[in-house]
Computed example of a mutant assay.
Amino acid sequence: MTDYDVLRVFCAPNGGYGNELGVVRNGAAIPQRSERQEFAAKLGFSETVFVDDPERGIIDIYTPSTRLPFAGHPCVGTAWLLDVEELVTPAGPVGARLDGEFSWIEARPEWAPPRTLRQYATAAEVDALPVPPPGEWIYAWAWQDEAAGRVRARGFPGRDDGIDEDEATGAAALLLTDRLGRALNITQGAGSQLLTAPQPYGWVEIGGRVVLEREPER
């Protein structure tokens, strides 16, 4: 088995929750896209990252069923793990910074995969939603406190690959921030926290806490 780290990204203030992420630091160990796709499917995380150049931050991102040019929680987690100021994704360069307990990235909304942003009247409605059948990727959200920018959200990938609900989804948070044009404090899934802020020239920052869950034996 190829060595890989497991992170939890967008954790709650107590370090709990967060979305698991697999990171293969030595991407050269699995060079072919077909092999990477197979490995990502075997791990079963919502995303797995292959690092092709740790110093330059060149990465390759996969779900269990497809390759992604960009994704939010993989970039936030990998930037934290590699401690770099930039990641290079197929979509474009992603700025990165650490600020206290938070790892931040800066990306563009048009890089995010398609998501259906579906607003509900109350957070309780979002909490009560059943998992929809496979189909479109749905980001269900409602204001918890509109004046304070606090949002309750859940993410349903709609994929037939065993992932019914995404615990924390940076790309969807990026799209919602761009649509609303304001900073957000999002509670997603069972209790994950995502922070966002619009930036000049159409960029959006996404930040969260990262915890190292597992690292390879050295």
Rank of each mutant, 00 (worst) to 15 (best):
I138E: 12
L87E: 09
R159K: 06
T48V: 12
A153F: 08
M1S: 14
S65Y: 03
E146L: 00
A28L: 07
R150M: 10
P157T: 05
V88F: 07
G191F: 09
F10N: 02
W137G: 01
A29F: 02
A171D: 06
R179D: 09
E165S: 03
R25G: 00
A41D: 04
T66N: 12
D161E: 12
R8S: 14
E106K: 08
L184C: 06
E136H: 12
P130E: 11
I59N: 08
L212R: 15
R36I: 03
Q32E: 15
F39P: 00
L195K: 02
V210F: 10
G202T: 13
I186E: 01
R33A: 14
V151F: 03
N14R: 08
L7G: 02
T177A: 04
T116L: 14
R33Q: 09
T48K: 13
P54R: 10
V84E: 08
A173E: 08
T187Y: 00
V24K: 04
P132I: 11
T89P: 00
V204R: 04
N185H: 12
P31T: 01
E101A: 15
L195M: 01
V9P: 03
R182T: 11
Q199H: 13
V24D: 08
P132K: 14
L194G: 00
E217Q: 07
G208S: 06
P200F: 10
L21C: 09
G22P: 09
A183L: 00
I206A: 02
F39M: 14
D3Q: 05
F10A: 06
G181W: 07
E38C: 13
E217W: 09
D127Y: 00
D127T: 03
R115N: 14
Y4S: 05
P74V: 12
A12F: 10
F50P: 05
R56H: 10
G158L: 10
P134T: 13
A140T: 04
R115K: 11
I138G: 01
G57F: 11
E213M: 13
E165H: 07
D60Q: 14
Q188G: 08
W203I: 06
D52E: 13
I61T: 12
L194P: 01
S34I: 14
F102V: 10
A148V: 05
G155K: 00
R179H: 14
G95E: 13
I163E: 02
